[in-house]
């Protein structure tokens, strides 16, 4: 960098202070909740002072230790949060796999079609993408009750896949556009059919885009509340509706701490996801923007 581009010291300090401040805003709520989940309710929601939550005064009195895992026990063992965790695992993994399978096929077709209707399909997908999920949910409920398929995991999975399709199509469509046409066309010149060209030439090079799109499909399934809360029965509840049902019985003592522990537990997979896939998430966010 040239000498003239050098910044004055106060500006550097100001920027650093601001960045540290933002870092604090972004990270502190999570750290605080993780810490508080290991305390008793009267510490985390202290009537006296928040220092109690830090030093665990009541926790020491009530349990004899600095930390307690009572909240986690209550959530995972007593309230069978493990069952919801398994349901969430089933739902998110299935949603991701099916979304990607349908999405790669469709996205590839849209990227290579060149016909006018491909454009209109993408525009329709954009409108579908913008629709609040709950508006669709209200359309599902009556038919699903009539067909007697309400409440089961496969129903929720297929609905989430469909809701996810517009986004997946857009993302993979723009990704396939960045793979040179010549690649599969030369395979076809060599005698492959379109499907063979797709299988032998395109599939081996598409994984970076598929992994990035898969991360966002996973997030959609994992973060969903509207669909899973309305379409699953009590036994098949996933984690997010389960947490909201903890809140329904909030007046029973200790229940809040179950919810706090469950919230922390449900955050852990997201934390791990960012830890390992930070680069892919960032590239996914910017890919859509740059190609716009």
């Amino acid at each position: 960098m040239s000498v003239a581009m050098r910044r004055p010291l106060p500006l550097n300090i100001l920027a650093t202070v601001f960045v540290v401040f933002w870092l604090f805003l972004a990270a502190f709520p999570f750290l605080w909740t993780v810490w508080g989940s290991l305390k008793v309710e009267s510490d985390f929601f202290s009537r006296e002072s928040f220092w109690n939550a830090i030093f665990g005064v009541r926790t020491q009195l009530e349990t004899g230790g600095q930390f307690t895992t009572a909240g986690y026990e209550g959530a995972w063992v007593t309230n069978a949060f493990w069952k919801s965790a398994i349901n969430t695992l089933i739902v998110t993994v299935s949603v991701t796999m099916i979304s990607l399978t349908l999405g790669t096929l469709g996205g590839y077709a849209l990227a290579r079609s060149g016909h006018r209707y491909a454009f209109w399909i993408l525009i329709a997908a954009l409108v579908f993408r913008a629709m609040p999920h709950i508006t669709l949910v209200s359309g599902y409920m009556l038919p699903f009750f009539q067909l007697n398929i309400w409440g089961h995991l496969p129903t929720a999975i297929i609905v989430l896949v469909a809701i996810n399709q517009p986004f997946t199509l857009w993302m993979l469509h723009s990704f396939f556009l960045s793979i040179p046409k010549d690649l599969d066309e030369s395979a076809m010149v060599d005698g492959c059919s379109r499907f063979e060209a797709f299988r032998r030439v395109v599939i081996p090079v598409m994984w970076p885009g598929v992994i990035t799109t898969g991360l966002f499909s996973f997030l959609l399934g994992y973060n969903d509340f509207a669909v899973t809360a309305m379409l699953l029965n009590q036994n098949n509840q996933t984690m997010i509706p389960k947490i909201s049902s903890f809140l329904g019985s909030i007046n029973d003592a200790g229940n809040v701490m179950y919810a706090v522990a469950a919230v922390v537990s449900a955050t852990v997979p997201l934390f791990i996801l960012v830890l390992f896939f930070q680069r892919q998430i960032v590239s996914g966010l910017t890919a859509g923007a740059v190609k716009g």
């Binding site: 972004a26 990270a27 709520p29 999570f30 997030l219 994992y222 973060n223 509340f225 997010i240 947490i243 909201s244 919230v263 449900a266 955050t267 997201l270 934390f271 996801l273 960012v274 930070q278 998430i281 960032v282």
Partner: peptide, 10 residues
């Protein structure tokens, strides 16, 4: 990235 990808309800 955390505040962005966190489940809205959580």
């Amino acid at each position: 990235l955390l505040p962005m990808i966190i489940t809205p309800l959580i």
